[in-house]
Design a binder for these strands. Structure first.
Lengths: 217, 217
DNA sequence: GTCTATAGGCTGATAGAC
DNA sequence: GTCTATCAGCCTATAGAC
């Protein structure tokens, strides 16, 4: 009995390992090459797994893609939910949102590029059930801005514009980091690009000053 | 003689027409589906042209792609060059840059998505000669910010961060406009998204307040 | 669970008639 | 310049051995 369990454990672990390897290489290659650009052959080779394993574990290329999207969002879902119910002032909540986003982008560097590609192609590869979830997370910024205006911390601004401006500058920075690194490595970009922390500090300072209520300075 | 010339004219015009049609449908489909996602068959069909014409006019799919990138930038190239040599104060030049960018994005709505996709995939589909040109245009923002700091109009900020934040929020907004429109049309987004003019005004105001020198208010 | 071999479809490109 | 017909190559997915 114990032996049998151990044997199953080992098998599960091995199975789990190839599953994770496929998720990892898939994330990287989908982000860099897009859904059509990344081939299952390439993904499997990079994961040192067999091509057929993508079918076995995820039911196909499309299944792997969706599994990656949900697997990446899932760990931060709780943090977003608790932020949504937080009673902090608006500026602290806004900083909290950025913090969670940066943490996600740091843990899975390829993720910003994937959601951006999804937005570019009109959510073509996301299932109908997954889409509202993404929208609700990003709408959180909008809610926070509205709260800040009610509290008198922020000047009157369009919440949707503010939302898009913040998300845009964050997603753009993290999704194109690889490109900048490549340009620097090839000597095509003479300047050293900013590191993520410095960039985030810059954006938060810009938002703080740019959104501040007139009397609040 | 005259007859012969007319005949040539007609032929040239017809040829020019299919060329333009291929450029137009290519721009749209590359932006929406990416380089690998858009097939030459699909592009030719949408242009009501023959598949083989892509080879004849542009020497292949790759040739069409590069022709689109240069053809879109070319009309604005002079305006960027004159802005580079302008002696206006930094804040006016920054607004001028945004104006040219918005004009480009309005005339060719699919263009922001194309350059963004290019950045995501590390400039894989741009030839080595075209790349520096893109970089120099976007570096213009950095130069303007540095000028503003020298003039004392802007507070001390990292020019590269400012550059990335502005470009990011603009490119993101225009490249994902189609996605937002689709969500609204399908009733998945309850709010009406901002129109481009309102968004640009918002961003310029945010930058103006966010970058203002301490004593300058 | 993992592998190999292969099916079946689609892709970009071109040769050759008009 | 434009078209049709066709090619070779690559893609995803799967059947079947282990």
């Amino acid at each position: 009995m114990q032996l049998s369990e151990n044997k199953t454990d080992v098998r599960n672990k091995a199975s789990e390992a190839t599953r994770e390897a496929l998720l990892a290489s898939g994330t990287e290659l989908f982000a860099e090459l897009g859904f059509d650009g990344a081939t299952v052959d390439h993904i499997a080779r990079q994961a040192r797994a067999n091509k057929a394993m993508i079918n076995y574990h995820f039911g196909g290329k499309q299944g792997l893609y969706e599994a990656i999207l949900t697997a990446t969002f899932a760990p931060s879902r709780e943090r977003f939910d608790s932020l949504r119910e937080s009673t902090q002032p608006a500026d602290a909540r806004l900083a909290g949102f950025v913090e969670i986003f940066v943490e996600m982008a740091t843990r899975r560097p390829a993720f910003p590029a994937m959601i951006l590609r999804e937005a570019l192609s009109g959510g073509r590869h996301i299932s109908g059930r997954t889409l509202p979830y993404f929208i609700s997370i990003f709408a959180l910024v909008r809610e926070i801005v509205e709260q800040g205006m009610r509290e008198g911390i922020f000047r009157p601004v369009d919440p949707f514009c503010t939302h898009l401006g913040l998300i845009g500058s964050l997603v753009f920075f993290f999704s194109t980091a690889g490109f900048r690194d490549r340009l620097v490595a090839e000597g095509k970009l003479p300047l050293k690009p900013p590191d993520p922390q410095a960039y985030v500090r810059h954006i938060l300072e810009l938002m703080k000053r740019g959104l501040a209520a007139e009397g609040g300075l």
